[in-house]
Structure formats: structure tokens, C-alpha cells
Simulated assay, not measured.
Amino acid sequence: MDFHIKYITPDIKLSTYDDKLFKTETVFEFHMLVWFISGETKIIQADQSYLFKTGDIFLIPRNHLATIINYPKDGLPHKAVVMHLTKERLKDFYSNIEVKKENIRKEVKIHRFEKHPLLESCLASLIPYFDMKDTFPETIASLKITEAISILREIDKNIDSVLADFDEPGKIDLIDFMEKNYMFNMSLEKFGYLTGRSLSTFNRDFRKIFQTTPQRWLTQKRLELAYYHLIEKNKKPSDVFMEVGFEDLSHFSFAFKKQYGFAPSLVR
């Protein structure tokens, strides 16, 4: 694995990856504005998948689960400029802007922005700074992030519904959330946080509702989804195990054979 990250500030980075693929399952604590220089990324959420290629610009909202798979492409590494839009910085930005409460909607989708010269030039202007030996001034970094937020608001009139939402996850329906998000290989602490519960409350509520432990239920649901992909979609085990929440192919194959009595490679 050859994965490099260069930071010019804690909130602006250049990531480079030139191995076969890099996969992570995560929930971000802040919004991520991403511009692809090269490579491809597949992002899988509960109800939708996205494929991003060279030149694409998109925003991943905070506090939403996603599986992210990065690929090199056409002999070039996976390379992207990433800007963190933290809650603190956004609160400061919106402190003098009135946003009506009814315009704040809970957005779960990833926002893709059509090619726009202002947004492209803003992000492209960061590239030379990654080669600087001196410390990048925080004042300039703040100006760059403010510029990016201002451009987003100019080209997407609905973006305030995402950027100006500062609420933390509240207690939500556990059945609905888990049925939509079980394929994400998150810690139980994260599942608890996203459903508005402490770990102990999450475990207690889960056992009461599902009559089993979270670990057993998650494994069962992921194997059922894998079986569906193998038999109905004619996919290969190597293409399935990551999408359904398993860390590696050998662990997936062992659990699948234990559940169904035969290896996943025999389904086809």
C-alpha cells in the first residue's frame, strides 16, 4: 500500500494513493469538499452509490455513513484535494447570515457540483502550496475556505440546508436506521452516536428490539445481502465482501460457509 497525505493546514490536504485500491468505511465529523485530480472513487451509502472521476467536485456531508473505495486509473494515482468544512468554521461564516429554520433540511445525499470555473480555480489554486517548505499562513487558509463556501452558496442555492445545519444526531428509530445501514462496518459506538444513543443504551435498545446481539444481527444481515448479490446479481465474492461490510475476503468466506454450508465461490 502506498498512501500519502500532505497537509498545508489541518483542514486542507492532498491525498495520493497508487496501489490497487483503498477502502474505508467511515462517518465524517465535518463536511468534506473533494476535487479529483486523477483516479476514481466509488462511494456507497445506504440507498445510493456514486462514482467520481477525474475533475469531479463533490461534498460529503458530515455524520453520514459511507463506504469509500479509491482506485488509481489509467496509470495515474488516485489523487485529490480535500477541504474540511468544520462546524466551528461554518458557524463563524454563518454568524452574520440569516438562514430561515424551515430551509434547514436533513440532507443525507452526497452533492456533486457540475464543472464551474470559480470552484475549480479555487481548489486548483491550492496545488502550489503543497510544495511549500514554509508553514502555510492560517489567515490565507481561512480565506481559501471562506472563498470555497461562498462559491458553493453561489452555485447551489440549496447548499445552506447542509452547511448551516449544526444539530447533532438525535434519538431516532433504531429499526429503520439499522435496516438501512447494517452494511457499513462501523463500531457499535458509532452506530450508537448516529442513532442518538450511548453505547450502553444502544446495546440495551438493540437487544430489546431485535432479540439478539448487534454483532450477530449485523453478521446475519451482511451475509444475506452478500448471498443476494452472488445469486441475483451474479457478482464475484471478491466484488461483494467489501460492499456488504466485511474487512477481508477470507473472513467473509469463512462466515459465509459457516452460515450456508458452502463457499461463496460455489454460488455461481
Results as ranks from 00 to 15, higher is better:
151 I>G: 04
127 I>F: 15
163 L>I: 07
198 S>Q: 09
227 Y>D: 02
210 F>L: 02
197 R>L: 09
184 F>C: 08
195 T>Q: 10
138 E>K: 14
168 E>C: 03
181 N>G: 09
223 L>Q: 00
164 A>F: 11
156 D>T: 00
233 K>M: 02
208 K>E: 14
192 G>F: 05
202 F>S: 07
211 Q>K: 15
222 R>H: 01
201 T>G: 07
203 N>M: 14
224 E>A: 01
194 L>T: 09
221 K>P: 02
206 F>P: 05
161 S>D: 05
129 Y>M: 08
169 P>E: 11
190 K>R: 12
221 K>S: 09
141 A>N: 07
183 M>S: 14
208 K>Y: 15
165 D>Q: 01
203 N>Q: 15
206 F>S: 02
172 I>Y: 08
205 D>L: 00
214 P>N: 03
138 E>A: 15
169 P>F: 12
157 K>A: 04
212 T>R: 09
165 D>Y: 03
209 I>L: 04
235 K>F: 00
183 M>L: 10
147 E>W: 07
234 N>L: 01
230 L>S: 00
230 L>I: 01
179 E>T: 09
166 F>H: 07
220 Q>H: 08
186 M>D: 11
174 L>I: 13
219 T>S: 07
209 I>E: 11
153 R>Y: 01
150 S>K: 06
187 S>G: 13
231 I>Q: 14
210 F>C: 08
184 F>E: 06
166 F>V: 05
234 N>Q: 00
194 L>C: 12
139 T>K: 12
186 M>V: 11
143 L>P: 01
136 F>T: 11
147 E>Q: 14
129 Y>L: 13
230 L>A: 01
202 F>P: 06
152 L>P: 00
200 S>Q: 14
163 L>C: 05
199 L>K: 15
203 N>S: 07
153 R>S: 02
161 S>G: 04
234 N>M: 00
128 P>M: 04
152 L>R: 01
183 M>G: 13
215 Q>G: 03
143 L>M: 13
230 L>Q: 03
223 L>V: 01
230 L>G: 00
165 D>S: 06
152 L>G: 01
230 L>Y: 03
165 D>W: 02
134 D>F: 09
221 K>F: 08
203 N>T: 12
188 L>D: 13
211 Q>V: 10
212 T>Y: 03
234 N>T: 00
190 K>I: 12
167 D>C: 08
224 E>N: 00
130 F>Y: 08
177 F>N: 08
200 S>C: 09
217 W>N: 03
234 N>D: 05
191 F>W: 13
127 I>N: 11
213 T>Q: 02
156 D>P: 03
140 I>H: 08
150 S>I: 04
225 L>D: 10
165 D>F: 03
148 A>P: 06
153 R>W: 00
152 L>T: 04
235 K>C: 01
214 P>W: 05
167 D>R: 10
178 M>Q: 06
155 I>M: 02
171 K>V: 10
233 K>L: 02
181 N>A: 05
